[in-house]
Write a protein that binds this DNA or RNA. Structure first.
Lengths: 346, 346
DNA sequence: GTGAAAGCGCTAACAC
DNA sequence: GTGTTAGCGCTTTCAC
């Protein structure tokens, strides 16, 4: 059978000698149809290699059956793993996945959410830290309401709630606790001058981690050195250059807490290039526990984030918000993974 | 303004005191509308926080403006980077991105393509190696035609063409050449017993690389040892266990060619756990040149694949197949990246 | 058990 | 410049 255009229910109906309504009923399978009729229809469907038009179906009111996924950058291992969880759960729930990237541009993020609103996505999952600005916060609140009114759902995955009364699903991980654990670990090994690399300004994750960083110090009656908190992006190259500068300027630093494992990779390389050794001369810890953390040299001590679970939970809660009405704000645990990149200071 | 349902053009029209057609014209911006009317409409749009229904618009004939992206697993760095290219180009072309994963299941792959057909995606990009089976090949050819007839396009990204006359866009990379280059490199350093780890059975990429592997040997008047080609998946854990077994069984092996950098990570770790050193005792090379390859220890010599370019080109060619009519089959170059994981055999 | 008809939200002819 | 109308492909009452 040679095709020359997109067949419609009408064509299938004509081919099978029935009405369009019958074709629709056979395909939906939710209505009694005579066996003979059904098989005639199915034969026609196969002959024409017909597939429904998802747009037309959606228009009729059954929804689009899609979950949107908004992320800064798909290549980051952290995002990729959350994406995996989102995709898995969406598939299990019979949904398709739309992906958009924002490249850390708040305006683009907002624009992309509007696009998803046009698409009538069942849920819009925002992954990764948000921005600490009132204007941004307000626009986000409005979007949450707009999505809600349209029967959709805003999901914040890995960023804090927008506040009470804002219709949204929040699936966070314990950013502060993870930072607290890893800094305590360093402190208990005897480190006193710990640098935090990758304090991305105005970022919700940064705020929480700095809090954990400070509290771990306080718990031991110490004070964190604010000069050792160095601002920067979540990139390997930042880790490299920042370490070179830092270790040249501040010879008293004995440990580096990298905001992401990616940064840590740059830190480790810089340490080696500086002729120093990790962990003998400098201890290094990361955050995220992405798969390659174990393959760095030395294997990286880091904070594990349940990335896949984060994604799955986000979709599950958002899609069944009637069932999980009371648990629309969840904080998943993080934990320290001890490997080989920490030792007592020399 | 409190919303309580999804507003339609009609609502906006009523609110602005104009007809639905005028609203549509203002929003499309492709038709002369009086300035006063336009601003009245825009005020209403903002007041209602209206966004068009993409489904309804698509139904009307303007297409869905989406590109589908079918991949085995989003967490693999190789796929993630191709995905990035696809997403970038799609965005530039004003398209949204649909993502689906197949988890290396050919049946699921076929099913997913049908889903994309229902979605009326402008292009369906298949990323990664295909399967070497006639049944699979035939079904793929039929899908290519089905998509073509529906005005869509099948794009093969990183796998060979389905043959002449099959309507599809093919963007490959030089699998064979890369394998040839890296094996020649090893051979020229004096290695004679080189193992290939991760020969994924019935996979198009495997076939091509084995060819390059063999030809590099032949070019030097040598013969590759078929026993040293070990079958396995593209995973870190496979690299680890396979290396342990191999190096215990075959003490004559001096170099390992891992089918992916991910496998190579496992290989390096196994070598270290075996109490051996790389590259002094065993040389290791990878394939893909994913970002973390440079962070492995020792930094991995590998074959660079222009992943992002692969994705961008795939989308660009598919979306402008009228302009690029003669170049719907492109092979992008690969090249050797020499780092620290190769030395002459002891 | 099946068909006829209405209508989802939008846009593009076609009037005026 | 603007309104009226028809219809995209589908599902779903409502008849029969």
């Amino acid at each position: 059978m040679v095709l020359d255009r997109r067949w419609t229910v009408k064509d299938v109906a004509a081919h099978a000698g029935v009405s369009p309504a019958t074709v629709s009923r056979v395909l939906a399978g939710n209505y009694p149809v005579a066996t003979a009729t059904r098989s005639r229809v199915m034969t026609a469907v196969r002959a024409l290699d017909y597939v429904v038009n998802a747009q037309a179906r959606a228009l009729k009111g059954s929804g689009t059956k899609t979950v949107a996924f908004v992320v800064s950058d798909v290549t980051g291992p952290f995002f990729a793993h959350v994406a995996h969880g989102v995709e898995q759960q969406a598939t299990e729930e019979g949904r398709l996945c739309l992906v958009c990237t924002t490249h850390d541009d708040p305006d683009r993020e907002l624009a992309v959410i509007d696009l998803m609103r046009e698409q009538r996505a069942d849920a819009v999952v925002l992954v990764g830290g948000g921005y600490e600005s009132t204007a941004y916060h307000e626009r986000m609140v409005r979007l949450a309401h707009a999505l809600d009114d349209a029967g959709s759902r805003l999901v914040l995955c890995g960023r804090p709630s927008l506040g009470h009364g804002v219709p949204s699903t929040v699936v966070e991980y314990d950013n502060e606790g993870g930072a607290y654990a890893v800094v305590s670990h360093l402190l208990s090994r005897g480190h006193r001058k710990i640098a935090y690399l990758g304090a991305q300004r105005d970022f919700t994750t940064t705020t929480a981690r700095i809090r954990g960083f400070a509290q771990a110090h306080e718990a031991m009656g110490l004070a964190a050195d604010p000069d050792l908190i160095v601002e920067g992006t979540f990139s390997r190259s930042f880790g490299y250059t920042a370490t070179q500068q830092l270790l040249t300027a501040r010879r008293d630093v004995t440990a580096v807490f990298a905001a992401t494992d990616m940064i840590a990779a740059g830190v480790l390389r810089a340490i080696r290039d500086l002729g120093l050794r990790c962990p003998e001369d400098i201890s290094v810890v990361g955050y995220d526990d992405v798969p390659f953390a174990a393959d760095l040299f030395p294997a990286l001590t880091t904070v594990h984030i349940p990335t896949e679970d984060l994604g799955r939970t986000a979709v599950r809660l958002a899609l069944h918000r009637d069932e999980y009405e009371t648990s629309q704000h969840v904080v998943l645990g993080t934990h320290l993974v001890v490997r080989d990149s920490v030792a007592a200071p020399a």
